Simulated assay, not measured.
Amino acid sequence: MKVGNALAALNALSHETRLSAYRRLVKAGPDGMSVGELRDELEVPPATLTAHLNVLRAADLVQDQREGRVIRVTANFDRMTSLIAYLTENCCADAGQCAPVPVCAQPARRGC
């Protein structure tokens, strides 16, 4: 991951509503959830959620798919894994050894 991509992702997550939305989508797993479901859970106005999702989309942290009249949003788990790897690639490099950083290989797995 390039530094610009990491900065875009971190910037997108630096707002309480966007972070809450992203965490909720991660919890939902690969099936994601509809925009309406997400809006109801976060209790934000539709236009506000749209604006926040656009920021997350621009950072490639979420993806959406139209299912008839419904838009289903999912977390981009590949991007999340790349960001975590970027942030931890030099973990404990000066200490000689490092505890492994857990990465959620199976997004729907309990505890991820």
Rank of each mutant, 00 (worst) to 15 (best):
Q106E: 13
M80W: 02
G96I: 14
G32N: 00
E43G: 10
A85N: 06
P102I: 06
G29T: 03
A9H: 03
P45F: 05
G68I: 09
G68S: 04
P100D: 12
A47T: 07
R23L: 08
P107Y: 15
A6Y: 08
A95Q: 15
R18I: 02
A85G: 08
S20A: 10
L49A: 10
G111C: 00
A99T: 12
N11F: 06
T88N: 06
A28I: 01
P100M: 04
L87W: 00
D31T: 11
V103D: 01
F77A: 07
S20Y: 13
S82H: 11
N5Y: 12
R110D: 06
A59Q: 06
R18A: 01
T17Q: 14
Q63P: 05
P107I: 09
S82P: 00
C98H: 12
I71M: 06
F77S: 00
A8P: 03
A12N: 07
P45R: 02
Q65Y: 02
M1T: 10
R79C: 06
A21Q: 07
L13G: 01
R110A: 13
L38N: 10
R66I: 00
R72T: 15
R109C: 01
A93I: 15
H15D: 09
H52F: 08
E89L: 11
Q63W: 04
L7E: 13
E89D: 10
L19P: 04
V55R: 12
N5C: 06
P46L: 04
S82M: 05
L13S: 00
T48L: 06
K27M: 11
M33E: 15
C91I: 05
R24M: 14
L19W: 07
R24A: 11
M1W: 09
P30L: 09
Q106C: 03
C92N: 09
A108M: 11
I84G: 05
L49S: 05
C104A: 08
A108C: 08
P46I: 00
H15G: 12
A51W: 04
Q63R: 06
R69G: 07
D78N: 13
V62Q: 03
C104D: 02
M80R: 10
T74H: 01
A105I: 10
A8N: 11
L49K: 07
P46G: 04
A108P: 01
N76C: 03
S14Y: 11
H52E: 12
R109N: 09
A108D: 13
T88H: 03
H15A: 13
L13Q: 03
G111L: 01
S14F: 14
D94E: 15
E41W: 11
R109M: 02
V26R: 15
H15C: 05
A9W: 13
V70I: 13
A58E: 00
V70E: 12
N11M: 07
V3S: 13
L38H: 08
A58I: 01
